[in-house]
Design a protein around this nucleic acid. Structure first.
Lengths: 340, 340
DNA sequence: AAAAGCAGCCAAAGCGCTTTGGAAGACTTT
DNA sequence: AAAGTCTTCCAAAGCGCTTTGGCTGCTTTT
């Protein structure tokens, strides 16, 4: 069933039927109703390819997915997708993942813009002065950044959590508990979130005149193994930390294993706080010693980003609004006063 | 730059340019070269919307993504995506995720088929007599199932790993080590993979005249917490198992925690083997006691499925070929002879 | 030398929708 | 009663591509 058939059947022009269906004013209410009825009865659905060709609107939101043999997609991504999908479903938006060579995402961004394959894109895991953000801003396609990029000479819309405040709070709590040597096991420090987290830790320590020396800082890809290695090397040095703030639950698994291997205990010898993006399959309260966390649902972020992207597509949202979500600090058994 | 401009510039008709670019025979070699040169020089890329409208081919592969507040996307999905993306990138295929209400995926399947939004779809995590497989087969769109569905009255193309053989081997090894009470902590048993795994375990046990009583079988969503609960309840019963075969690494984390809570040891009191889909961020060799696994890269499966989907789209692959991959059994420290 | 075949090109007709630029009729205004 | 103003509809022109059905001029066959 296409427009032509439907209009023939109603004895109206395609113009009128199209307008009736798309809510244009120059159609009488009665006609509109007739058309709507017939469309529903016959299950008419406008062909998206045709509509896209005519309007340039795709009804899809895009994501350029870096790929490559040595590129690992962040496991958080699937939770984010769940949230995005939740919202997108309700608004008939599809999501198109355009795989790109991780070393050259620009070509792909240019392609999807030139081809108008999507109406908006979302950009994740930005780094300092992120090239992608600059590019897509310049190309003039609606977008939202999940996270933030610093060092760009323009404003842009984003959704981020308050990483700095979260890690500031976590660290401050450790300091208040008497910890003098607090280490940070961070994610890849080319990414902005890691920079903010480090900043939060430093600021909290500095407030009590404590420094964060390089020997107490690790910045690594967030795997269990790296968490283990980082913790082990931290704890084996002479001035071992008594508190660790850790950027992910998965790394925290490694930290716990290292602690156990070294015959230490949590929280007796080491207090541990990690950031939790809220996975359904790994929960901090279920760690052998329940893990204190800074918590923020990445799934909720996905929903919100979908919502804002939809708003930008329909012109309801414009400008460069940045949205920063507070992060919960959830205290559980993994922290205690510093050992004497 | 569109076809018209390009053809004007070359002083050729759109027909000829189009044909030259698409490798049709009725164009002289010289002309073809001229056209190809000009196209490359001016960075001409055919508009996909227009092409789609004209041909009905979308250049995309689809996935209907179940969503809903209580629906969790499998964390394996992102690894699978990595693999799919790897291949898709090299072949200019995009992937479109169509979010669907988990309780009504049919509508979405019908929509993407009716609209020709994608050239092929892939279906994951099939259950017995899977409705989606039946539907999409009937709708006549190319597809490949990742996994298998039993109880359908037609053949279809799929890629699966040999779950039954894998769990058969794992169990057989335990039996050979003298274990008489072997438990299975399985995934959701509405899914075919879980059925096959159970079958493998039963068959291996039966070969030595051992049964798998209901008290030694758990079938749960694959989270750390469920792994813990299952293991704990198994180990606390009077006739506790001395060996456990477990359907995922994440559940195995929970099993290990339960063992520790109960002051038992691996492999002294309990031998443990789990299935490993190969995550970059959690490796069985890094478990406190290195974990024996049945291993199969889900990422490789993603690549292969993309490859086969591409082949089906271009008509290179037809028919209902099922492909079953063998699974490696990797022995590490987590198994030993049964305690006496 | 006429007929046939072929290589190489083109004009034009779609694909199914949106949107522009009227036009007809009814209703007001002067 | 003539002129203007809405309201409601329509024909036709795109959007950028593919594909059908020729047409031309040249080579080969009979």
């Amino acid at each position: 069933m296409n427009l032509k058939q439907l209009s023939l059947m109603l004895d109206l022009s395609q113009t009128t039927v199209s307008r009736a269906l798309n809510g244009y004013p120059e159609v009488s209410e009665e006609t509109r109703r007739r058309v709507a009825d017939a469309a529903k009865r016959h299950g008419y659905r406008p062909n998206p390819s045709a509509r896209r060709l005519a309007t340039g609107k795709a009804g899809m939101i895009g994501y350029v997915m870096p790929t490559g043999a040595s590129v690992d997609i962040d496991p958080h991504f699937v939770e984010f997708l769940s949230g995005l999908g939740d919202y997108a479903r309700a608004h008939d938006l599809d999501l198109v993942l355009s795989p790109a060579d991780a070393r050259d995402e620009e070509t792909t961004y240019r392609r999807i813009v030139a081809n108008k394959q999507v109406d908006a894109v979302y950009v994740s895991a930005p780094c300092h002065g992120d090239k992608r953000v600059a590019l897509i801003h310049q190309l003039g396609m609606p977008f939202i950044v999940h996270g933030r990029s610093e060092g760009l000479d323009f404003d842009y819309p984003y959704l981020d959590i308050d990483n700095e405040a979260a890690f500031h709070e976590a660290t401050r709590l450790l300091v208040q508990l008497g910890h003098k040597r607090v280490a940070l096991i961070n994610g890849d420090d080319t990414q902005t979130f890691a920079i903010f987290r480090e900043r939060g830790v430093r600021r909290a320590l500095a407030a009590s005149g404590i420094a964060l020396p390089p020997v107490l800082l690790r910045s690594v890809a967030m795997t269990e193994e790296n968490g283990y290695r980082a913790a082990r090397s931290l704890l084996e040095q002479s001035e071992a930390p008594t508190g660790i703030v850790c950027s992910s639950l998965i790394m925290a698994l490694g930290v716990v294993r290292a602690v156990r291997d070294l015959k230490l205990t949590i929280p007796g010898d080491l207090s541990l706080i990690a950031h939790d993006d809220v996975f359904p399959w790994l929960k901090p309260e279920n760690f052998s010693v329940p893990l204190s966390t800074t918590r923020s649902s990445i799934r909720a972020a996905g929903q919100r980003i979908a919502e804002r992207l939809a708003a930008r597509i329909s012109g309801l949202e414009t400008g460069a609004r940045g949205e920063i979500w507070p992060v919960d600090l959830v205290v559980r058994g993994s922290i205690a006063g510093a050992p004497v």
